[in-house]
Computed example of a mutant assay.
Amino acid sequence: MKTSTDELLAFVTVIDSGSITAAAEKLQQTVSGVSRALTRLEKKLDTALVRRTTRRLHLTEEGELFLGRARAILAAMEEAEESVARRRERPSGRLRVDAATPFMLHCIAPQMKAFSALFPEIRLELTSNERIVDLLEQKVDIAIRIGALQDSTLHARALGSSKLRVLASPAYLAEYGEPRSVDALRGHRLIGFTAPDLLNRWPLRDGADLLKIEPAMAASSGETIRQLVLSHWGIACLSDFMTSADVRDGRLITILDSLLVDVRQPVSAVYYQSATLAGRVQCFLDFIATRLRF
């Protein structure tokens, strides 16, 4: 590359400041030094970027085009330097993370010993809300949300997706029998959610739509529903992130697998970006993204 960053910086600063003298003051350089940098840049590009008059500077057409590219290059370099600096620094201070109880218990809490070993100066505060929280009102730095995102004002990072399955305990199935069809399923005790009603549409076909169940018992928390299934009360539809260990260890059994529609719940981290929180937020997101297994 023929052009140096010093020359790009001199050019952009001259335009932003309105004069070579003001640019020199801002850059803490001599007027002649800034002027020479601008002249070198124009010579290398073999074109005039600025028309100089006694009163002011005017960008040429080529200068207008080059200015946008120069700004982008300088911004990219600054971002690259900051990313390296963040790795060198040791993030510290309070970081409040919010997630629904099941995700907190099954996905976040088991990883926090390893996180604290890597970042001992970050003071974690973990909160659990079953409903969507206002990050500013609750002073939350990162919220983990399950499902489609609604708030476009937040920054978001996709963490993956978790499949929905229909499950029951071995003891329940031994007592009441395993349903082999959607019609047979309706004759069982089904456990659903109090809200939102969308969670009571199970990934099974009922005509052209997904099956809409009428819960014999409902709960607001997926973890409560999981405990009801584990205690042999009935059948539920839950996400892999909270039941995969139960299935692996034989505490729960998936049913109607051959009829299951592949429905997955997206998992996202949402947050407000700010200079003071960027380091803590970034290191937590990078860490948890590598640890999640759905």
Score class of each variant (00 low, 15 high):
Arg69Asp: 03
Ala48Trp: 02
Leu154Thr: 08
Asp134Pro: 05
Leu256Gln: 15
Arg189Lys: 08
Phe66Arg: 06
Leu277Cys: 11
Ile253Thr: 15
Pro102Arg: 00
Ala208Asn: 12
Ala109Glu: 07
Leu230Ala: 06
Thr276Glu: 14
Phe11Trp: 01
Trp233Tyr: 15
Leu118His: 11
Asn129Glu: 06
Gln29Thr: 08
Ala208Tyr: 09
Ile15Gly: 02
Ala24Phe: 04
Val261Lys: 07
Ile73Ser: 01
Ala22Leu: 09
Gln28Ile: 00
Pro91Trp: 01
Ala168Trp: 00
Phe66Thr: 04
Leu9Ala: 07
Gly93Pro: 01
Lys163Thr: 08
Leu185Arg: 12
Tyr271Phe: 15
Gly63Tyr: 03
Ala275Thr: 13
Glu178Ala: 06
Ser220His: 07
Phe241Ala: 08
Arg280Val: 01
Ala23Val: 07
Pro215Glu: 15
Gly234His: 09
Pro196Glu: 08
Ile15Asp: 07
Ala184Asn: 10
Arg71Asp: 04
Ile146Asn: 15
Leu238Gly: 05
Ile73Asn: 09
Leu190Ala: 15
Glu130Gly: 02
Gly192Glu: 10
Leu38Met: 14
Gly33Ala: 11
Arg264Thr: 13
Val34Cys: 05
Leu159Val: 07
Leu260Pro: 13
Phe284Pro: 02
Ile122Ala: 11
Ile142Met: 03
Arg205His: 11
Ala289Thr: 14
Phe284Ala: 05
Asp6Val: 04
Arg189Trp: 08
Leu210Gly: 10
Leu45Glu: 09
Ser17Leu: 05
Arg55Thr: 02
Arg293Val: 06
Leu9Ile: 06
Val84Asn: 04
Pro196Cys: 11
Thr153Leu: 00
Ala23His: 03
Ala22Thr: 06
Leu135Arg: 15
Met112Ile: 08
Ala289Arg: 11
Ile20Glu: 13
Arg94Thr: 08
Thr276Gly: 06
Tyr272Asp: 09
Leu256His: 14
Gly222Gln: 03
Val31Gln: 09
Gln29Tyr: 04
Thr5Cys: 08
Ser17Phe: 02
Asp209Tyr: 10
Arg55His: 06
Asp46Gln: 13
Phe66Pro: 05
Val229Leu: 10
Ser221Cys: 12
Leu210Pro: 00
Glu79His: 00
Ser92Trp: 02
His188Phe: 15
Thr194Pro: 02
Ile213Glu: 12
Val166Ala: 05
Pro215Lys: 07
Thr194His: 10
Val50His: 01
Asp197Ala: 09
Ala148Val: 14
Phe119Pro: 07
Leu136His: 11
Thr194Met: 06
Thr47Met: 09
Arg280Gln: 11
Thr254Cys: 12
Thr30Leu: 07
Gly68Lys: 10
Glu64Arg: 09
Ile225Cys: 08
Leu105Thr: 14
Leu292Trp: 12
Asp197Arg: 04
Leu65Arg: 11
Pro196Trp: 04
Gly147Asp: 07
Val229Ser: 12
Cys283Ser: 10
